[in-house]
Write a protein that binds this DNA or RNA. Sequence first.
DNA 1: TAGGACCAGTTGCTTATTGCAACCTATAGC
DNA 2: GCTATAGGTTGCAATAAGCAACTGGTCCTA
Lengths: 190, 190
Amino acid sequence: MLIATYSAEYRKRLQSATYFVKLGSMSRPNVFQTNCPIARVTAVIGEAWTLMVLREAFLGTRHFNDFERQLGIARNILSDRLKKLVEAGLMQRQPSATDKRAVEYRLTEPGRALYPVLIGLTQWASQYLCCGESALRFIDRATGQDIAPLSVQSQDGRALGLKDIAMVPGPDADQAMEERFEAASRAAQG
Amino acid sequence: MLIATYSAEYRKRLQSATYFVKLGSMSRPNVFQTNCPIARVTAVIGEAWTLMVLREAFLGTRHFNDFERQLGIARNILSDRLKKLVEAGLMQRQPSATDKRAVEYRLTEPGRALYPVLIGLTQWASQYLCCGESALRFIDRATGQDIAPLSVQSQDGRALGLKDIAMVPGPDADQAMEERFEAASRAAQG
DNA sequence: TAGGACCAGTTGCTTATTGCAACCTATAGC
DNA sequence: GCTATAGGTTGCAATAAGCAACTGGTCCTA
């Protein structure tokens, strides 16, 4: 439902070329006007520092100066990223109730919905970039155990590997996209 | 085991400041020398276009010119990103056996291990950026059904929300990091 | 076996982004 | 009032991306 609150307006901008042209350094409207979700997600969280800002937000940071201190990010860049995250509906900007100078940046529902991705990235990096020993672990509060590695599953809960799944064109796919999926499907099999 | 094949050499570079300083535009060694997995993953796949190149690779693209055509990426940037992905061990570069002009870029095991993340991003974007109707769906080959939404789970398969999990310092965490997690833990509860 | 097309890049130039420091406005606290 | 703090903005130098043209091999056809 929160989707509905921001998507009506936001969707228009997503579909206008000028918006994407200004996003990130990838000024290729043709790429971002496709409805490939990865292209769109790149436009929204693909810029330098954006993922780190989100990580900070998940760690509970809410204030401009705290983001700056924790990340060592330049203030103008931080300002820009927070603005874009708010625009994109991932975070909300709220003047503090107790201190009129202060502003609080918090994740919205769409923003929080990214946490499986953040966890997936963390698990991947811990395994492949930190050689299994990172500074960060996730545990299940109820049991204290490490959480399970993120896995792709079927509706009935079977774990699915890369070869068990297929990409198929969705409702918005065009002809070129459909042809690509057939090629991709063959490639995945081989 | 494939980890072992590239990590011995790669790990050294990961730990040297100069490597990170040159990665992306975020020339802040202090950030990337931390062992925060998100910081590291940003260094490796956070640059503009890198995620798109990976998406292409998952779609079965293997040749330089095909990446260029499908993405509309500048050739020098593509060259740079492929080089870095190979260096980082996510892709491998192999001269074609049948055509001596051609080169094949393929995902390695560490690269393929990113697919849950790609799927998570796709599902998130489809829901929040494409309003549920994207050009791309994933189905279970065995049944033809859509796959399940990516979920974070406990060891025994319970679905875990953001509030059911806690971040705790791992083996490589320092004092400052430990203090942060306590703050983060409190923030997640509230 | 000469000529053209094709693959995988590289080079040089222009434009857009980032990093850094200094500055600004409004509020808080004493 | 005076100083410190919060959340920015502005201008300038350094860096990265976008674009077109060029290179060095290899394939293919006549």
